[in-house]
């Protein structure tokens, strides 16, 4: 799920960035530092959308660095247990398949793939129904349900299932 939230961060800036462009430098550094990172609490920071305010700078003894408390708005992404997600399949093997939704890595084990879908090995391994009508392979888009999540500093791991109504392939790359 995406959220638009306000977060706060203390930014340390080298004195060479001071002057007329202080604010721009601060924002550029903030984007560089924050966008694309994860926190267990908020999830993955997709983009900074605005600055609420920049507090008074505090000079650090010795280094000359100045730290500014910055309040900023950003869009974060955090998957939840029970959430339905659409993801792109990145790898298919005997154990199940891996899929990606932005920064999220999802594993769907073959225990949680419908029983009528069978694994086919070969140079394009896939799970296919016996009548061949549904096929999951690399680059397929699937709709899956999250049953477990773990958010690390840089990565989000999820366990998914497609063994439920209305889940599974939503487009088949082979038919495109």
């Amino acid at each position: 799920m995406f959220f638009h939230i306000v977060l706060e961060r203390n930014m340390q800036l080298h004195p060479r960035h001071f002057g007329r462009n202080l604010r721009e430098n601060l924002v550029a550094k903030l984007m560089k530092d924050v966008e694309g990172t994860c926190s267990g609490q908020h999830g993955f920071v997709v983009a900074i959308t605005g600055i609420e305010n920049i507090g008074k700078g505090l000079i650090r003894d010795g280094t000359g660095f100045v730290s500014f408390p910055v309040k900023y708005q950003c869009v974060v992404f955090r998957p939840f247990k029970g959430e339905i997600l659409e993801a792109v399949v990145t790898m298919v093997n005997k154990m199940g398949f891996f899929a990606e939704a932005g920064p999220v890595q999802i594993f769907v084990s073959n225990h949680l793939i419908p029983d009528d879908m069978e694994f086919q090995s070969g140079d394009m391994p896939n799970y296919t129904t016996s009548d061949g009508s549904v096929k999951i392979q690399k680059d397929s888009e699937v709709r899956l349900k999250i049953i477990g999540t773990r958010v690390d500093a840089t990565e989000i791991f999820c366990i998914g299932t497609i063994k439920d109504d209305f889940l599974g392939v939503i487009n088949d790359p082979a038919s495109v």
């Binding site: 199940g96 594993f107 949680l112 999250i146 477990g148 773990r150 791991f157 366990i159």
Partner: peptide, 29 residues
């Protein structure tokens, strides 16, 4: 039966104890 990112890939529960064999060559975690 196994885990991905330290979560059981069947029930989704976070597993505290690591057991079994790592298959990092197939996928990290």
């Amino acid at each position: 039966p196994g885990s991905f990112g330290d979560m059981c890939f069947l029930c989704g529960q976070r597993l505290i104890e690591q057991s079994g064999v790592t298959f990092g060559y197939i996928h990290k975690g």
